[in-house]
């Protein structure tokens, strides 16, 4: 390579170099370090920790709490991702042809995004208070007032479906974002395309079925990935609503407990590694897919 060409791009590389080093160390280096730690028996803070291979990764499946937290994460993810997708799509669908006051509607649906999950958790813990009957506050009291006492339940303290309740504030917080994504998707469908289909005798329903919805697939996939990875990392909201209770335990909270309460770095690293694996399984294909699309 000629010297002049190197001179041309070398300053650029130098300018980005600090960031490259930072990402290399803090992202890839530390992910590797974490996996390395997960393969040791450093189960307290003083010991050196010898290499034990995949022992921790296998051993954790013997713990009931791990099974619980994985099940909880699955229920939470299913309800949250499904709920936010459906609600966000519905709101976008109702608005896509333009409606009076659209700016106001959008601003209201989106404002929860600007608030921390911790603040959200404070109010939703009150709303989802498990007291019933005379002691009912929050939504249970509201149901009572509406004459729907039979619908009162334990919310996130319900042993079977508590995590579904936990997903409600998350849906409240994120569906406006999904709406914005879908609205951009709807608006990205060229109007002449719809008009052409109408001229060809398509009913409005068929225009949606055969023209609009297929063109929304990439947006749906993006929304799915974004919601999914948020869901697997869910931590703030759960801690803010219910703290460290086993009844709403998820891997992210379990990892926190392992590090700070059990003082077991190897166990914390193992749980963290599983979260990384779960997220990577669908983020990496998505990144490859979207970069290929961009290049085209």
């Amino acid at each position: 390579m000629s010297v002049t060409r190197v001179r041309r791009w070398l300053p650029g590389l130098l300018l980005v170099a600090p960031s490259i080093v930072a990402i290399a160390v803090f992202v890839y280096g530390m992910l590797g370090w974490n996996f390395r730690l997960a393969m040791t028996d450093k189960h307290d803070e003083i010991s050196e920790g010898g290499f034990v291979g995949l022992e921790n990764f296998i051993g954790i499946w013997d713990q009931q709490r791990w099974h619980l937290s994985v099940n909880h994460a699955i229920v939470f993810t299913a309800v949250f991702v499904g709920g936010a997708l459906v609600l966000g799509w519905l709101l976008a669908f109702l608005m896509e042809k333009g409606i009076r006051g659209e700016g106001t509607f959008r601003a209201i649906y989106l404002f929860p995004m600007a608030i921390s999950f911790v603040a959200t958790g404070v109010v939703w813990r009150w709303l989802m208070n498990s007291g019933t009957g005379e002691r009912a506050v929050g939504l249970n009291r509201l149901l009572d007032g509406l004459g729907l006492e039979s619908l009162q339940w334990q919310w996130f303290r319900d042993p079977d479906w508590g995590m579904a309740a936990m997903a409600v504030p998350a849906i409240w917080q994120m569906s406006g974002y999904v709406m914005a994504l879908f609205l951009a998707g709807f608006r990205g469908v060229p109007e002449d395309l719809r008009e052409a289909a109408r001229v060809d005798g398509c009913t409005e329903w068929k225009v949606y079925r055969h023209i609009v919805l297929p063109m929304l697939r990439p947006v749906t996939l993006s929304a799915l990935i974004i919601l999914g990875h948020i869901s697997l990392k869910a931590f703030d909201l759960i801690v803010a609503v219910s703290g460290k209770q086993i009844i709403t335990d998820v891997p992210a909270v379990f990892m926190w407990v392992a590090v700070f309460d059990s003082h077991d770095p190897a166990k914390g690293a193992t749980i963290a590694a599983y979260i990384v694996i779960a997220v990577s399984i669908f983020v990496i294909p998505y990144l490859i897919w979207s970069l290929r699309k961009e290049r085209r």
Binding site: M30, L37, P265, V279
Partner: peptide, 10 residues
């Protein structure tokens, strides 16, 4: 996209 739990202990 990485879950920050994965880098937290290091």
């Amino acid at each position: 996209f990485i879950p920050y739990q994965g880098v937290m202990i290091p």
